[in-house]
């Protein structure tokens, strides 16, 4: 290959090396050269081994400088730490790398970038009708998608169809931002939400609703639970598990329009400086004294707040029945007022 490059460089001194790199990878994609051919071209051009790992497609191989394909066992993080690399665009979790020891050669960066783009567009093409991983996630979460399509989506994402998984719902983030792996934007009554399919242990982000575990090909209830939980999160309880909500999850699908007056009343109380802490404390403790302790106020102060709350809502939050009703009304307020939207 080096001879070839020299040969070409001599034949056409005007064309710069970088133009050739761009043209080569574009041409490989256009000619449908396949992932191995694309990675092989990078190895040939850079004269060092090159590799590709795409965990959601279960693809991991390297091509040595002589063009021979070999399997790779290392994890993406390990490879990223060891070699100059580039993430694969389009929402894939994988990366490409060049096994260059020492200082990078001129053009390595460009080769990596074009290699990553070429791999990304080829993966899109190879996913047959599911143009990218986000589309596969969306298919997986779509209750109306035929079973065969959901199974295809699971395979595409590298998930065994019978494996249990959970949906984690988080706020939608910035408009156009690259999505993490196995993530799609789904539209809910509360606006767009990020839904991520997670197997194994869930590492909850800052604000999230975590759905119940369901088979990968029947994830829709997990999405419903995750979205319900996310909609009920507050600054005090930023992460909620649907498994812990019990019947409260049902209020997210209950008609709340007739609760307008109560929702407005809750809103008015929450606008008081003491409102949010006090209502939360009253709904989650079993006595005025305990609520006062949570808020760090004297119990006589809490008593007078309770009377204001009772007057405003029309029931006494200090009774067991009133406490339950307050918790539900707080939920109704969140469901009515919390809206998600893409930032920027």
């Amino acid at each position: 290959m080096r001879e070839l490059v020299e040969h070409v460089a001599g034949l056409d001194a005007v064309a710069s090396e970088s133009l050739k790199v761009v043209g080569l990878f574009d041409a490989l994609v256009e000619a449908r050269a396949g992932l191995e051919g694309i990675v092989r071209a990078a190895a040939g051009f850079a004269a060092v081994p090159a590799g590709l790992v795409a965990p959601e497609r279960r693809i991991a191989f390297r091509v040595d400088a002589a063009g021979a394909r070999q399997p790779v066992a290392a994890a993406p993080g390990e490879l990223a730490a060891r070699w100059p690399n580039h993430p694969i665009p389009g929402g894939y979790a994988g990366l490409v790398w060049l096994e260059r020891h020492g200082a990078p050669a001129t053009g390595d960066h460009l080769v990596l970038e074009r290699l990553a783009i070429a791999v990304g567009s080829s993966l899109d093409r190879l996913t047959g009708g599911l143009p990218d991983p986000a589309a596969a996630v969306a298919a997986l979460l779509d209750p109306d998608a035929p079973a065969a399509r959901r199974e295809q989506a699971a395979r595409l994402l590298g998930l065994p169809p019978a494996a249990p998984a959970r949906v984690v719902a988080t706020p939608p983030g910035r408009r156009g931002a690259p999505l993490p792996a196995r993530t799609a934007i789904v539209h809910t009554p509360a606006g767009p939400v990020r839904a991520t399919v997670v197997t194994g242990t869930v590492e909850a982000p800052a604000r999230a609703g975590i759905g119940p575990a369901e088979p990968v090909t029947a994830l829709h209830p997990s999405l419903d639970g995750a979205v319900a939980a996310l909609r009920l999160t507050t600054a005090r309880t930023p992460v909620l598990r649907a498994d812990d909500l019990g019947l409260l999850a049902a209020v997210t699908v209950a008609p709340v329009a007739h609760l307008r007056a109560v929702v407005a009343a809750i809103g008015g109380l929450l606008d008081q400086p003491w409102g949010p802490d006090t209502l939360h404390a009253l709904a989650t403790t079993d006595s005025v004294r305990a609520a006062a302790a949570v808020c760090g106020v004297h119990h006589s102060t809490m008593q007078s707040r309770c009377e204001q709350v009772g007057a405003r809502l029309g029931y006494d939050p200090r009774t067991p029945a009133g406490r339950v009703r307050l918790a539900l009304d707080l939920a109704a307020h969140r469901l009515t007022t919390v809206r998600f939207s893409l930032e920027g």
Partner: peptide, 9 residues
């Protein structure tokens, strides 16, 4: 396909 890309570029 691989050869086509080389030929073209």
């Amino acid at each position: 396909p691989e050869l086509q890309a080389f030929l073209d570029t």
